[in-house]
Design a binder for these strands. Structure first.
Lengths: 386, 386
DNA sequence: CAGCTGTTGCCATGGCAACGGTTC
DNA sequence: GAACCGTTGCCATGGCAACAGCTG
């Protein structure tokens, strides 16, 4: 037993020593180091310690680490200062979004910022990535290439919410940061609208994909979902929706199954498609088709809300994931149903619902390709702030 | 300006000195001290600093405060150690749930616990509450007077009870005929259900009240809500819900107004009541009343979801508040509608929707009484872990 | 000069694990 | 002895306010 613990420990330790080294004047975001660690654990089927305990480990291995909080105002993140990824570490390939900070790591207040043409040697000390972008412009460029890191922002925010909701509900106390800055809400053109919704959906889909590919999140979702009291949900919803219990149960089972199989967004999309087909087939050809379709959307949404509600009351850790996925799936459902209605009535989807078609004509499948938009994420994440 | 800041500061300071004093061997939960402070600020229309800054204030006033974390395993709460409420403070009346801890505050491991007849003097040094109960029996009695604090514990117990009741019963009756078991379990689980939903709703209401009383949160909500693109919401929802735009806009305006006025839960309850009345009055007396009522619930929920969706995509800081409030209001809407349907059809609410009435017969108003239990919060927060 | 902005010190809170005392 | 439990140390993260360097 002692042996196995020691063994596991030495694996962790070796991994740390293999991939990181002490280095003056550079820092790493704690989260990226910890995320690497989590990934490592997942790959080697080790169960990870939490961030706090990991901190102890790190500090016991690399003595003398200091703490810094870097980032733009209101967005500071904790960093370990005095450590870097080894230049030859395979992790460099996994996540390249951390090094661009390296160039700002000298205790600052030394000045060589924004001196484009002048290659200051204060940057030279790190032989690795930091120096790959030896001018701010290059660093910027690098940064924009690493937009992927923003994908998780939404889920992170929501997860944080889920976490803090617990606190609210118990303590009934909390205060938001006082960043109440009124921004005028201008009149937005339909085009801008469509564009925004496009990018929103795009980001949603990317975030959702990240969730659905993460085994531990999936597992958390499954475990949370299994705690949901579907009998209660049905009990309340049935009066409102008048849905057959059998249908609802089948959907529940199907959903869990699909989740369990770590389905891709593609597979989810066809699952959703199939649901719509099944539900609406009995109305095919009937003049009541549009009405039935609308009712289906209403009820689908209602059931989703009830499940989300249950998850909230249980402070399910996966609340954020479910919320995210629910948004995306509802949106897709909307698209699917509209499409069916358009087919059924012979109208074009545009006639069914104006501009929505512009958005909806993107299928999830399209969104599933590796999102390479270079939008640094101002859409979903909070604007840098005006 | 400096003067006014100084003035405000001195008010705060005077209030602290008036109500608290240093005292060895006793502690106060930080949250209760901070809650008192918030209440004081609210009453005097001062805007409060956050808990962290309040901590600085406290420590600058009462030097030498130490930190302790007391509570049952997994439920520890931070306390200031070395301070107490003054015996003559009016706050004693407000919240009597903190002092019973006093007798356990000696750094412990000293042993005079449970030595009924022997009046140890280790308790003597504090002239106030701690020493009023110099035997465990008296302490018990005092404790039972402070039963308010147990409200939370009670709900916790109820909930745990409700949760495990089913399992117990199934086990206990494992050798009864299968049908008997099923019937019994059914009855009991319905009951457990009711209890569970009662406690959930209670907590929801308390949390919502905290949100609605917090000016900065309200402001955040307003600002976020004003950014919501209701035109877009309506555009999507109208096809599904077929609601009149005018009605929706009026609701939107009303909602914002009610929010702006920092309405109490009572006022919100009557607002909701009024909404139901307005919407359903055109169906009064009609046989389609129940149907209309159900449709209303569906559409209400759908619109809520759309707004929440918009808030999510904007990463609104007040997302959590809205989510919380939405859960509560939906629940209340459910109750209201059911009640109306029962009236309209002449059935009892129970007939309309079985056991739900048991829960629903609590109005929000009842829940609005000051729930100041210091419930360690096992209800909504995640269970200690299995 | 006044106004921004990144950084950091001080505080809060919370998870986990170790410790020492109690109970069975 | 084993199991349990309250407490505490060490770590994490995050808000706010003060500071200092920029920028206009």
């Amino acid at each position: 037993m002692c042996v196995s613990i020691g063994h596991v420990f030495s694996i962790q330790l070796q991994w740390l020593l293999d991939n990181y080294e002490t280095a003056e004047g550079v820092s790493l975001p704690r989260s990226s180091l910890y995320n690497h660690y989590l990934r490592h654990c997942q790959e080697h089927k080790l169960d990870p310690v939490n961030a706090a305990s990991f901190g102890k480990l790190i500090r016991s291995v690399f003595m003398g680490l200091r703490t810094r909080r870097l980032g733009t105002r209101g967005n500071s993140k904790y960093h370990y200062y005095g450590i870097r990824l080894k230049p030859d570490s395979p992790l460099n390939r996994l996540q390249e979004d951390t090094q661009y900070m390296a160039m700002r790591q000298q205790p600052v207040h030394q000045k060589p910022r924004y001196r484009p043409a002048q290659k200051t040697d204060s940057l030279g000390e790190s032989g690795s990535h930091g120096s790959l972008h030896s001018t701010p412009e290059q660093a910027m460029a690098a940064q924009s290439q690493h937009h992927q890191q923003y994908i998780g922002t939404l889920t992170q925010a929501i997860r944080n919410f889920a976490k803090s909701l617990e606190g609210w509900l118990t303590n009934a106390m909390s205060d938001f940061p006082q960043q109440v800055i009124q921004t005028k809400v201008g009149v937005v053109s339909a085009f801008a609208q469509t564009l925004r919704r496009y990018t929103s959906l795009n980001h949603l889909a990317q975030a959702a994909r990240a969730v659905l590919q993460n085994t531990s999140q999936i597992n958390q979702m499954l475990s949370d979902l299994n705690r949901v009291d579907f009998a209660n949900v049905q009990e309340q919803a049935s009066w409102v929706c008048q849905c057959e219990e059998g249908v609802v149960q089948r959907l529940e089972q199907d959903f869990k199954l699909t989740l369990q199989q770590q389905s891709s967004l593609d597979q989810w999309a066809s699952w959703l498609d199939n649901v719509v087909t099944q539900v609406l087939k009995q109305h095919a050809g009937s003049p009541s088709f549009p009405k039935a379709a609308r009712q289906f959307l209403l009820k689908w949404s209602f059931y989703s809300s009830m499940v989300i509600r249950d998850l909230t009351l249980r402070s399910a850790a996966s609340f954020g994931s479910f919320h995210l996925i629910r948004l995306l799936y509802d949106e897709y459902m909307f698209y699917l149903v509209e499409h069916r209605v358009a087919e059924a009535t012979g109208e074009t989807p545009i006639a069914v619902m104006g501009e929505f078609n512009d958005l909806a004509s993107l299928s999830l499948t399209l969104l599933d390709k590796d999102g390479n938009c270079c939008d640094p994420g101002g859409i979903v994440r909070r604007e840098p702030r005006a």
